[in-house]
Design a protein around this nucleic acid. Structure first.
Length: 597
RNA sequence: GGUCCGGUAGCUCAGUUGGAUAGAGCAAUAGCCUUCUAAGCUAUCUGUCUUGGGUUCGAAUCCCAACCGGAUCACCA
């Protein structure tokens, strides 16, 4: 039982005894004492005044007296206005540190075969262009969330739905046929996804020119769009693809494979992975079948032009198209099919979609549609909706060339990490492959942390010109502290300074150390909250607080030079426990920590 | 126009199951490397928490209204 819980119970019995009123423990809220006051935990007594019918000060004193006499973990107390500040005894903190020190996987709940299964969909790229900054936020959030859910005792399946079919990929294919001269990733040395992206842009360029020419001949915009031969060819190609035309399908496979090998490289660099990948080309027909089943069962209806619709006006939404008049599927049809396949494949208890907040409406609709089709999971699906990544001058626009490419950005981060490391002379004594590894860990970690420390729901601003800081609330600051702790532990070992993993509770302990242990003790609750709130940011900001506190401690206290063996042991045990929590917490963000840097 | 989300220091962000004098980092200024890694530490400076009401012992936090910004309301994905 946690100290907090113990004291809460003692307060409940105290109030019962003093004022004869039964108070459920949930109503008693202990909070962390503010830094400027003495004590560890604070009880705000205002809510109990109507029971005690006495002044705040007097009430606080009475409860405080009761605790000191009856609850051994409370050493002393002080009262300021209506605030009862409790000081927990040193021996409790030492006992707590002992416990944390020998708890394996501290902070995480074990996963068993009976654990509920959560499937997390993230990434979901289109195969016509490379990944950009927005995808980075998506991938980092999705991967981190998977780790957090696992730490909270869920079985987790990470999944990805690849948008591999549709008019967009036909545009790239067409441009490549027309102007590509058989260029391949091998022949040009370009990454497959970047190569395809270039042809997508090239199509758009020629298409725009064609429109301009047509408009110059006196056509309106709409007429020009209808008359465009390029667009006509692209649509024609999509039709050939859907009817299984062999040359088109072969080309499609070839070009998509170029993209996949490019994506795989990027995913590897990002440090994310998937347990199961679905492809839209394999799910859209299933979606169509499901929609037709819905028509048969009366959930949806057909209009005169043969298009299929869902009437959601009873759910305070509008009518929604599900199949076009020509029978082809739309975006949401595919999500219905994917959902069905997934639930056929796995016994999913909870489905989480990591998708940007511009699709809030889409998922609201999807939830209702799945429910109408009789899928039990429809109502409970979670849309983990995150904000846009904006540049200082506003949204990223591919047409204006302001898109920040994921590969480029990651490379730049590593390059910057390398330059700073060299300037500081950090890497002088290390082997080249070690240098590469540290540069990767620091550069990439800083990027991930920079993105994940922000509340996922909020839009965030990213300034590519001001490179990401390596000071302050950053991954490198945390990584540096971790490396330094390891250095101390390494040196302790070299000097033969082993320390027991269990300290006598009689050891005297400073206020700073008590505060650090109190912070450490909060970790499991933070992991739980992060899981409930879907917020890796909670963990990031917690780790930062812990590290900041430890750094001050590190500068104020000697560890290896401390001559009192009990104190030295305490500090070594504290340091190694903190290192363990840093590693665990950063691991939940998908950020590695190096043992030296 | 309807719906949803946001507005906290010059900048980037914490802080919201209502609690004490609203916090960090960056930027600025001044110190600290014969001592466990200076990617660090210390000190100073920085605020109409968008505005106006309400709820109460107490509001950045909850409610109402207004203003500003964003998203969405596609036979695009």
């Amino acid at each position: 039982m946690s100290i907090e819980r113990q004291i809460t119970d003692a307060i409940a019995t105290g109030i019962q005894k003093l004022y004869g009123v039964e108070t459920p423990a949930e109503q008693i809220q202990l909070q962390k004492t503010k830094r400027e006051f003495k004590g560890h935990l604070t009880l705000v007594v205002f809510p109990f005044l109507r029971m005690s019918k006495k002044s705040p000060e007097q009430t606080a004193h009475e409860i405080g007296e009761h605790l000191v006499v009856n609850e051994p973990s409370v050493a002393c107390f002080n009262v300021i206005k209506g605030f009862l500040n409790l000081t927990v005894s040193s021996s409790c903190w030492v006992a707590l540190l002992n416990e944390i020190g020998r708890t394996e996987n501290y902070g995480s709940t074990p996963v068993t075969e009976q654990s509920p299964l959560v499937m997390i969909e993230y990434s979901s790229p289109n195969t016509n262009k490379p990944l950009h900054l927005g995808h980075l936020r998506n991938n980092f959030l999705g991967f981190s969330l998977a780790g957090i859910m696992k730490a909270n005792g869920y079985r987790v399946v990470k999944t990805n739905i690849v948008n591999d079919r549709g008019i967009h990929i036909c545009k790239s294919m067409l441009a490549w046929l027309k102007w590509g001269n058989g260029e391949t990733p091998q022949s040009s040395g370009k990454k497959g996804d970047h190569l395809i992206g270039e042809y997508y842009v090239l199509f758009d360029k020629h298409y725009k020119q064609e429109l301009k020419d047509l408009e110059a001949r006196g056509l309106t915009r709409e007429q020009a769009e209808a008359r465009s031969s390029y667009m006509h060819e692209a649509r024609e190609m999509l039709r050939s693809w859907e009817s299984g035309d062999e040359t088109v399908v072969t080309l499609w496979k070839t070009m998509n494979n170029w993209v996949y090998s490019g994506f795989n490289e990027t995913y590897k660099k990002m440090g994310v992975d998937f347990d199961k990948i679905y492809y839209e080309s394999e799910t859209y027909l299933v979606g169509k079948e499901e929609v037709l089943r819905g028509v048969k069962e009366g959930a949806f209806y057909r209009r005169d032009d043969e298009s299929v619709w869902a009437d959601l006006r009873k759910d305070e939404l509008d009518e929604k198209l599900l199949l076009r008049a020509d029978g082809t599927s739309v975006y949401i049809t595919q999500d219905i099919g994917t959902a069905k396949l997934r639930f056929d494949d796995y016994p999913i208890d909870k489905m989480v979609y990591v998708v940007g907040n511009e699709q809030n409406y889409h998922f609201q609709v999807l939830s209702i549609l799945l429910d109408k089709l009789g899928f039990a999971f429809g109502k409970g699906l979670v849309h983990f909706s995150y904000g846009m990544v904006e540049l200082p001058e506003g949204k990223m626009k591919s047409r204006e060339g302001t898109v920040v490419d994921a590969d480029d950005l990651m490379d730049e981060m590593m390059q910057t990490a390398r330059e700073i490391s060299q300037e500081l002379g950090k890497l002088d004594e290390l082997a080249p492959d070690e240098v590469e590894n540290i540069v990767r860990i620091v550069g990439l970690g800083s990027l991930k942390y920079f993105i994940l420390k922000v509340d996922p729901r909020k839009n965030m601003t990213f300034n590519p010109r001001e490179s990401i800081d390596f000071n302050g609330n950053t991954a490198s600051f945390i990584q540096y502290t971790y490396a330094r702790i390891h250095s101390v532990l390494r040196k302790a070992k070299e000097q033969g300074l082993s320390f027991p993993d269990k300290l006598p509770t009689s050891v005297s302990i400073s206020e700073k150390e008590e505060n650090l242990i109190q912070l450490l003790a909060a970790y499991p609750a933070i992991v739980r909250e992060a899981g409930e709130a879907y917020s890796p940011a909670l963990i990031a900001n917690y780790i930062y607080d812990l590290v900041k506190e430890y750094n001050q401690f590190y500068h104020d206290f000697s560890i290896l030079r401390e001559e009192n063996p009990e104190w030295r042991h305490l500090r070594l045990l504290l340091s190694s426990s903190i290192a363990a929590v840093i590693k665990s917490g950063m691991g939940l963000l998908g950020v590695e920590v190096p043992e030296r840097m």
